[in-house]
Write a protein that binds this DNA or RNA. Structure first.
Length: 373
DNA sequence: AAAATTCACAACCGCTCGAAG
DNA sequence: CCTTCGAGCGGTTGTGAATTT
């Protein structure tokens, strides 16, 4: 079998990474930042191909990874996003702060998929057209009531569609246990044809890692390219008005201004209001490494939450302008957005969430897993 | 207790895309 | 244009731990 070109030039090690290799890679990136991956192995003194280094960093060593089990909320979001995006794991992962495409993909294949397959719903993204929309049964509502909200069905059909009213997300996931996750999955699987309609969650908006925020840091994603992300989606569905609507919604939620890198350029045109400590640089996290010339910047509170607050579900002034509150109640807002959907009498949106604990959204900043004692 | 099986997830592979020359 | 190269993505495989028989 052929190897990638960068792997052919020299004898490279493959397989699991050792702690020593991890340390080398961390030290190198801490000192030099992200650059040309093909040069990293040589410069870092690793017998690996650049591709392997990149993968190791992105999927495992990055300091902003959350790790740990997926919460039911995250699982629900993955399901919803998968309905829209299909197996575009990288796109899905972008909406799950601290999660990688690989992680999401693995989670889908190992946990979610097997729950859905028995019900024949494993491929929701390409689920065929709905049955006759005139079918009437309790708990149906029209998505057309809110043109900003779409479902997969709208992606596939350009006319009015009806879907079953889902139980409130808050109702289902209040306690965050997987039993309820199962109930949720079973509910959706049993309610032909599709799970609840899709609304981009406030989780989508987490262009900052919530854990950093909960710790009092403000994170500006390093390489979040909003324009690029949605350009790709628009290209893919260029003639699909429904998807255009979706991106419009997400555009509201993810302010392009936030695409300003965490480590901004030298221009002053992205100056923002200082808001407490900035997320520590990698070299500040990695013990014993010296910071170098990476300029940091902070992010204004309005930049982070402004787009969310502008949603109609938060009447003027009702959006809590407090980072900790925002993070602690993401699912509350998710549910609030869900409640925007015209709902039947059987659907309640009034239940409330317990604030998510730091541990629920906590990441494991240590270098993990197999090599842990 | 040992073997077999299942499971989660880390890592690899092949491919596409875009930029640069 | 064409070629080359690097980055990134999704599918697949490999590995080790956990569980079951």
């Amino acid at each position: 079998m052929g190897h990638h070109s960068c792997c052919n030039k020299q004898k490279v090690k493959r397989g699991l990474w050792s702690p020593e290799e991890d340390e080398k890679l961390i030290n190198y990136i801490s000192t030099n930042g992200l650059g040309c991956w093909s040069a990293v192995p040589r410069l870092a003194g690793l017998q690996r191909c650049g591709k392997s280094c990149r993968l190791r960093w992105i999927n495992y060593l990055r300091p902003d990874l959350k790790r740990g089990s997926f919460s039911p909320q995250e699982a629900a979001l993955i399901i919803e996003l998968h309905r829209i995006l299909g197996n575009r794991w990288a796109q899905i992962a972008k909406h799950l702060p601290g999660r990688t495409d690989n992680e999401v993909k693995n989670f889908w294949n190992s946990s979610i998929k097997k729950k859905l397959i028995p019900h024949g719903l494993s491929d929701l993204a390409t689920f065929p057209n709905l049955p006759n929309p005139s079918a009437s049964y309790e708990g149906l509502y029209s998505l057309n009531a809110n043109p900003n909200l779409i479902s997969t069905t709208q992606v596939q059909q350009d006319h009015q569609v009806y879907i079953p009213t889902p139980p409130s997300m808050a109702q289902v996931f209040n306690q965050g246990d997987m039993i309820k996750m199962d109930q949720y999955l079973n509910y959706n699987a049993n309610l032909f044809p599709v799970p609840p309609s899709v609304v981009p969650s406030p989780l989508d908006l987490s262009c900052y890692d919530p854990t950093w925020s909960s710790l009092g840091y403000h994170y500006r994603p390093q390489q979040f390219d909003h324009q690029h992300v949605f350009k790709q989606e628009e290209d893919m569905f260029i003639n699909n008005e429904a998807v255009a609507n979706y991106t419009t919604v997400v555009d509201k939620l993810v302010d392009p201004k936030m695409a300003t890198p965490l480590y901004g350029d030298d221009d002053d045109d992205d100056a923002v209001l200082p808001m407490g400590p900035v997320m520590p640089k990698l070299c500040e996290i990695t013990k014993g490494n010296e910071c170098n010339n990476i300029p940091s910047s902070s992010v204004s509170q309005d930049q982070v939450i402004g787009p969310i607050a502008s949603l109609s579900c938060f009447p003027s002034g009702s959006y809590p302008h407090d980072h900790h509150h925002v993070v602690a109640n993401q699912m509350e807002y998710f549910d609030a957005i869900m409640s925007l959907l015209p709902s039947s009498s059987s659907s309640s949106s009034s239940s409330s969430f317990s604030p998510l604990s730091c541990s629920q959204f906590g990441m494991n900043p240590t270098f993990p897993s197999r090599w842990d004692p």
